[in-house]
């Protein structure tokens, strides 16, 4: 078990390294290939050669790619020193560097953005799991009924709706039309739990609608499969009450496959719900991702990519470990 864990952790670190290396390479090489110059982002109206060269030096753009990447890695592990004119600033580990544009440390920016994305992802996840599983189970139990058909039709519709459309619809109906809800906004939970809730309810519901649809379909399929298993028949034959059969035996193995999917979905969402955050103007990781890309801000892009990959890798790991616990057939080793 320990050996397995260590191997998985090493794997995770390697994956993260490769992700940063690829990101770094692409964003280093693409401007070279297209002939655009990141330094030009930061000069004023007059692109004086002196100024452009000054910026290149400042951003370290004149170093070879290996040196730049090495400095980036060293910053994460040991921190980095930056010259800012009269003195030197130490950016302590884990240091993701400074944004090109605003000269801020990337790490605190992303840590700041994290609660927004976490609130968004967790809130939506709770909603969609509850709704998805509930509707899925009921559908499976009443297979072929009008209820089943109705739920599955809605679910399929839900899967087919882009969030940037449902989001806009929700905004125009509930915020501007009926004025039931305030515009989506993030307030830290500690500051004001009620505002935190009302500000996020709209993105939660919109996001949850999409995922709940998927989960209802998945739950239904898994439950149907499980209910057809021999041991369920045996349980029924033993004379167990239907509630026990479903609750104790059916749900357990019927929902196990959902764990994987759930872990991956949450991991991916934590890495930045770009579209949701764009539609609702929330300043989470997804917002910074878009911001970084639009401004060619390599440190920001690298930071967000690293965070996103980190969540996906970690959730994968957790899912696999959890599997060992819930499903006795799976042995880790």
């Amino acid at each position: 078990m320990l050996a397995y864990l260590i191997r998985r952790l090493i794997n995770a670190v390697v994956t993260l390294l490769v992700v940063t290396l690829v990101t770094f390479g692409v964003f280093f090489l693409v401007p070279k290939a297209t002939g655009s110059d990141p330094a030009l982002l930061y000069v004023g109206k007059q692109a004086d050669p002196v100024a452009v060269e000054g910026i290149r030096t400042k951003l370290g753009l004149n170093d070879p790619i290996i040196v730049q990447y090495g400095k980036f890695l060293k910053g994460i592990v040991a921190g980095r020193d930056y010259s800012n004119g009269p003195d030197i600033t130490h950016c302590s580990a884990p240091c993701l560097g400074y944004t090109f544009k605003t000269n801020q440390e990337v790490w605190p920016i992303l840590i700041d953005a994290l609660p927004v994305t976490i609130s968004l992802a967790i809130g939506a996840a709770v909603l969609w799991v509850l709704m998805g599983v509930l509707f899925g189970v009921i559908s499976a139990l009443r297979r072929g009924s009008i209820w089943d058909r109705g739920v599955m039709t809605v679910a399929l519709a839900g899967v087919s709706l882009p969030i940037y459309f449902t989001g806009l619809l929700a905004l125009s109906i509930f915020v501007y039309g009926l004025k039931w809800l305030p515009n989506a906004e993030y307030t830290p939970f500690i500051d004001n739990p009620i505002k935190w809730f009302t500000g996020l309810i709209l993105p939660w519901v919109t996001l949850a609608f999409l995922f709940a649809a998927t989960y209802a379909r998945l739950t239904r399929a898994n439950m149907l499969e499980t209910l057809g298993e021999d041991y369920i028949r045996t349980a029924r034959a033993k004379g167990l009450r239907e509630r026990t059969v479903i609750g104790k035996h059916g749900l357990r193995s019927g929902l196990t496959p959902l764990v994987t999917v759930f872990g991956l979905d949450v991991g991916a969402l934590l890495g930045g719900a770009i579209l949701t955050e764009a539609v609702f103007n929330l300043r989470g990781l997804g917002y910074w991702a878009l911001q970084g890309i639009r401004q060619n801000d390599l440190p920001t892009i690298l930071g967000v990519t690293l965070f996103a990959a980190f969540f996906i890798v970690i959730m994968n790991l957790i899912v696999d470990l959890l599997y060992g616990v819930i499903d006795p057939r799976v042995r880790l080793g």
Binding site: V19, V26, F27, V30, P31, A308, A309
Partner: peptide, 19 residues
């Protein structure tokens, strides 16, 4: 596995926008 662990949307936006 690596591609599936990759922040794909992010990357697509970045790639498409610079081409």
């Amino acid at each position: 596995d690596f591609l599936l662990a990759f922040p794909q949307l992010l990357f697509s936006i970045a790639l498409v926008s610079v081409l």
